[in-house]
């Protein structure tokens, strides 16, 4: 009995932990590559810029509304987990407020018409 509980528990634990990584591989890796290197300038590299963006209100919106994120066929909770996983994986050691499901829902309902200009505008503020 105890062994059965252990089995069940370990199954759920692995599932929850592996979830964002699988979503990354299925929905992001195709262009951003396994290591997040991307193909600049067309496909941006995932690095500490993620933490820079997630550190401001406008940047947080951008990361959710950029078409690759907003249009990925996963629900808001899964997208929140995926973005939080990416922040930990590609911008390690940064203190960033994690995304919540409700935050994702709010941003995702607003369409970002010109992602490239928005990206340029956000990074102009950085330099």
């Amino acid at each position: 009995m105890r062994f059965a509980i252990f089995l069940t528990l370990s199954f759920f634990l692995t599932d929850a932990e592996a979830d964002p990584r699988s979503h990354y591989l299925i929905h992001c890796m195709g262009c951003h590559l396994v290591d997040g290197a991307g193909v600049p300038p067309e496909v941006p590299t995932f690095n500490h810029d993620l933490a820079f963006l997630a550190g401001t209100d406008e940047g947080r919106r951008y990361l959710v509304q950029v078409p690759g994120a907003a249009q990925s066929p996963i629900d808001d909770a899964a997208l929140a987990a995926l973005l939080n996983w990416m922040l930990a994986r590609y911008a390690p050691g940064e203190s960033v407020t994690p995304y919540s499901e409700s935050e994702i829902s709010e941003y995702r309902q607003q369409i970002l018409a010109d992602p490239i200009s928005e990206r340029a505008r956000l990074f102009a503020a950085k330099h």
Partner: peptide, 13 residues
């Protein structure tokens, strides 16, 4: 030229 099919891992999603 042609297409490959590389296995990346088990889908845990």
């Amino acid at each position: 030229h042609c297409s490959t099919a590389v296995v990346m891992g088990v889908d845990e999603s």
